[in-house]
Write a protein that binds this DNA or RNA. Sequence first.
RNA 1: GGUCCUGUGGCCGAGUGGCUUAGGCAAUGGUCUGCAAAACCAUCUACAGCAGUUCGAAUCUGCUCGGGACCUCCA
Length: 492
Amino acid sequence: MNYKENKLKINNSLTGEKEVFNSILDGFVGLYVCGPTVYSDVHLGNCRTFISFDVIYRYLLHLGYKVRYVRNITDAGHLENDAEEGEDKIAKKARLEQLEPMEIVQRYTLDFHKVLDQFNNLPPNIEPTATGHIIEQIEMIMDIIENGFAYEANGSVYFDVEKYNESNNYGELSKRKIEDLVAGTRTLDGQEEKRSPLDFALWKNAKPEHIMKWPSPWGLGFPGWHLECSAMSTKYLGESFDIHGGGMDLKFPHHECEIAQGTAANGSKPVNYWMHANMLTLNGKKMSKSTGNTLLPEELFSGDNEVLGRAYHPIVVRFFMMQAHYASVLDFSAEALNSSEKGFLRLMEAMKILEEIKTSKKSSFDVEGLIMKFYNAMNDDFNTPILVAHLFDAAKYIQAVNLGKETISESDKKDLTFAMNEFVFDVLGLTLPSEEKGNNESLETVMELVLQMRQKARENKDWTTADAIRDKLNEAKIVVKDDKDGATWKVQ
RNA sequence: GGUCCUGUGGCCGAGUGGCUUAGGCAAUGGUCUGCAAAACCAUCUACAGCAGUUCGAAUCUGCUCGGGACCUCCA
């Protein structure tokens, strides 16, 4: 399927409209997603955003685009809170634990990669770090100063929001008015350096006790909170690129500031399509490191948590997320996860049966129309829940063919198999649940023997023995199913 | 306080002017089976409240009530 034949529509946060997607360079897409701050374990809410954009990346690839997917690692430069003005998050943690800052960064970066790999996320093409792009950030600040949109004060550099707003619209993304923002500003330390409370730091002067700092034209310091994404997206995707994504909570001020920085430095709008993934909630509230309302992936996979009480496979969690649209809030609960797990297994069962079903001369079902529905769903702003609904329609049809109630032609079977594999495995990024325990040769031999014995018992109508064997196997996580041709088994 | 989003059946979750029986899970009845399991068939519960616009609204508008996000690091 070629991207040209598809009218992919994207809900653009910048305009608030669902727009037909046109890339700047035909056939190529530049995609930037704000990555994690690697100073603590990535939690499940963080994962949702990255999984959402993984599907978006995968679908763009499926449509035939050549995508450059850039996702940063924030390993420096974020303020802790107003009480500890100017202190770098990573530096703070380092002092507490008596580790080198880069030791912390390394540890949580590895953890981040491991978790996303468990969710079967594809790696981005470039994963730049903030500390690796200090020079680019300094250069960008110099451009902004030169263009008159920033000023220096005591070794720090601030973005002049009001100046910028004279010729541009600060607040266009988050739909805020500059007057309202001024009214709602809190008093922060270091504000006396700023011309306006709305101004944000591009470069912060580092105090002597500060660990992570770099030389700059304004003295020793560290880059501001929003600058790294602007510098790195510009470097790898250009001054204007196609899609910028991130979590909804980054819309303001982070992304608003990125637009301002990019425009101030380069004179052009940095991004055509802004996309925002919504929050994953727990107990109805946003998951958040600072409030402690979180669930770690490891706790979920191991079952070692109070929220759910049992373990879930990462792919089941991924499927659960696919059943909601990326732009909607999704609440996490054991009940919802259980129902997803059952549905997921049913879908996977249909995937396996599809390979084996018999074909007929004609199909009794509009297979081509069904496949078109897969595309229509994804073309409509990556509507994965609708896609999943159609995949279940396909599963129902596959089961019906298997029972002889419906028919499928050879060529339709080929098309459906191809499409199902593409959408289930390549686009949604699902995988068949692992069955490695069942692929053991000696176990196969033993099971063959056991089932033969059970079959004899059944032929003798010795139901007690037959059922006892089945129950015992069940306890050992081996499920036996009887059908017309005998019994099948699988490891749970 | 300001800005914005949201309220769908037992649960999750799409849809957005007229027929979507959305879909998944659960429940009930049935087919199949020695019994199960699986699968299939059928049934069931709905659009927060009030008012308005309209031939027609769950879908648009207003108000009320509830929930959430952002305004401070946050996916």
